[in-house]
Design a protein around this nucleic acid. Structure first.
Lengths: 146, 146
DNA sequence: TGTCATGTTTAGATGCAACTAACTTTTTCG
DNA sequence: CGAAAAAGTTAGTTGCATCTAAACATGACA
């Protein structure tokens, strides 16, 4: 008997660019209910043509469902990746925000760092954020030192 | 009278790849006294030909001095960039190491994140690391929670 | 000192992710 | 309803960072 293998997502799409698209598509669907090419392009500050190219690739990899001229929807796999990226984003952003960094710096650093955080590192950062939230004295003391 | 401008480093070389080269060249010079193409290639796990291409670019940008077949040396500008990258690397690594992450994870995450850390974020992370070093009770408590 | 192994460079190709310009489809509204 | 505007797509180009294969330089040593 021939064994069949479950279609493991083919992680070609660990590219940080692809993750950025998935993240934005997820955010747009969350806030507006749908994700149009023009909105994705605006959010990522790139040309619409580039968005078309990428969502075709993401569709081929099974992370979104794309219908020409109709817009795009996340698959389960795509949503899972998007949610992980968002989670990492949130943790990093709240850490930096708790120390009072300006939003522009937060945006830039988080955008750069978020793709490279493993599960293990995410747990470390989450723990730190939780402690600082639970322990405002500590946070205040550390902020002093900046 | 014609004004002359001081040669601001031309930050084309904010590319993360370029930073990786500068960091490794710096490390090699630090440990062996010199940086050969083959060693850089081995450290970065890329082909020697790719190293040649990059150090030519870094030379053109004034970050290294490159003499064909002779090896490479950092300029002041190049060394400054390399030292910043190393500093960010060290802070991130010691944070993760203090929480007991395995070296492989540390290496991977740090390698990815280090290029995207601004001065401000570096200060935040440094402060956290210092506090954990000064306050082992806190560290122990947080490690419990992982 | 000439030869050869090792190390380095050049030339040319590839993949990714962006771009612009031109074309097509969809939507809006008079 | 149909024409103009808006949105989306295709085709072709670019820059970066990598690769392989082949040519070339350097240094060791027989």
């Amino acid at each position: 008997m021939q064994l069949t293998f479950s279609p493991v997502p083919k992680l070609t799409t660990s590219s940080t660019a692809a993750q950025d698209y998935l993240e934005q598509i997820h955010r747009l669907i969350g806030s507006k209910g749908y994700a149009r090419v023009a909105d994705i392009a605006a959010a990522l500050e790139i040309a619409p043509a580039s968005v078309t190219a990428m969502i075709q690739r993401l569709d081929a990899e099974g992370l979104v469902v794309y219908e020409k001229y109709r817009g795009v929807v996340l698959t389960k796999d795509g949503r899972e990746i998007a949610e992980e990226v968002v989670k990492r984003h949130e943790v990093l952003a709240s850490l930096l925000r708790s120390f009072g960094l300006d939003e522009a710096t937060i945006y830039q650093d988080v955008e750069g760092m978020e793709h490279h955080i493993s599960k293990a590192t995410l747990r470390v950062l989450t723990t730190i954020v939780e402690e600082l939230e639970a322990n405002p004295k500590l946070l205040a003391r550390l902020r002093e030192r900046l």
